[in-house]
Structure formats: structure tokens, C-alpha cells
Amino acid sequence: MTIAIIRTIVLYLFIILGIRLLGKRQIGELEPTEFVFALIIADLAAVPMQDYGIPLLAGIVPIMTLLCLASVISVLNLKSVRLRNLLDGTPSILVENGKIRQREMTKNRCTVDELLEELRLKGYPDIGMVKYAIWETNGQLTVLPYAKEQPVPAKDLQLSPADPTLPRIIINDGQVLHQTLQKRGLDDVWLQKQLASSGVKSPKEVFLMTVDDNNQVYCSVKETNV
């Protein structure tokens, strides 16, 4: 059993390394090269993890090779457009100027139902609202509606609303993040005041407290029965 634990830890760390290499993308947003990598890496690790008779190296060496290949391909993809097009493909314009490009749909094996479903998911129930629909290489659909269907920006309405600021967490599940507090130029005295104004005695009673650049505070008190 000890062997199983150690082997699992080693292989798990290797998979984590591989997934970290993929970056912050979600599985559904992977490019073909990354998708293949994600598919293979888990299977490679699973076999030596379950079968003690297979040397650990039989899992580690292919994973290492894949990691190196993925790394090489990702760097080369950045450098060469031609290689990027070859490995990851190019986006396909499925709707152009409101017209469905049927040849492009067939080429991508995309049915009308799938297209309409994707459009509905993007908030366009009527295809007549769409000027361009582009099937990206990661399988996502980008939709550009006609100008008349787009939301009106504030500037067009002669309005000048305040720019949003980024709220930062200062209390996370009862723990005060002093570093964030200091970065914002605030101190414990200020924090105590905010807690008091929220009717709280201790930071431990707070589930979430954030403060933005205008020192606007959001406070969510912990529920007692959670």
C-alpha cells in the first residue's frame, strides 16, 4: 500500500505540472494540441498508478516527453502562424453578413441545430440578429450582432457613469488579509471601525469583506448555522 501511495503522489505531481503548463484555460477552451495532451496524460498516469508491476518510469518518461512536446509546440505556435494554423486550425465564419455559409457548416460538420443552440446560449434567439458568427479553434462560437441589436454604450446616451474599481478581499472566511489592507493604505483601526459599522465585533464573524479603490466596503457576516 505504501508503494501505491508514493507512486500516486509522484504521478499526481506530474499531472499537476502538465495541467499547469496548459495555463488557465478550461477543458472546453483547449486548442486541439492541448486537448490531445490533456486526454493522454491522465491515461498515461493511471496505468502505472494501478499496476505495481509496471515501473513508474514507464509512466514518468512518456509524461515528461509529452510535457516537453507541449511546451515546444506552445512556444512554436506563438512564433509561427503557419504552424498554428496547421496544428490548431483556423476560425471558421459560419454566418457572414447575416447569411449562413453552408459550405463552411458542412466543412466543420456543424448542423443548423447546433448553430442555433450556440446562438441561443449567447443570447441571440433569432439568427436575424447576427451579422457574424465565428467558430473559433477552441470550439467556442463568437457572435457579432448587427449594430441595431447591440446594447447602447453610455457615451452614446451622453452619460458619464463612474468607472468601476476592483474590490479587494480584506477578510476571507474570518481571516484578515493584512497585506491587502496595508497595500490599500488602511490599518486595523480603520478595519475595527468598519466592523463596528457592520455590527460585528470580531473579524472572525465575517465571511467576506472587500474594499474598492473608493474605500467602499462590502461586508457579508458569517451565518451561524453553516
Binding site: M64, C68, L69, S71, V72
Partner: peptide
């Protein structure tokens, strides 16, 4: 580019 060369070097070493 450093990442590329490290990966290539690792592949060659392996």
C-alpha cells in the same frame, strides 16, 4: 524562448 530550449534540452537528454 528559454522554455523552448529547456524543453528541447530535456527531450535530447531523455
Amino acid at each position: 524562448m528559454k522554455r523552448l530550449w529547456i524543453s528541447v534540452a530535456l527531450l535530447v537528454v531523455m
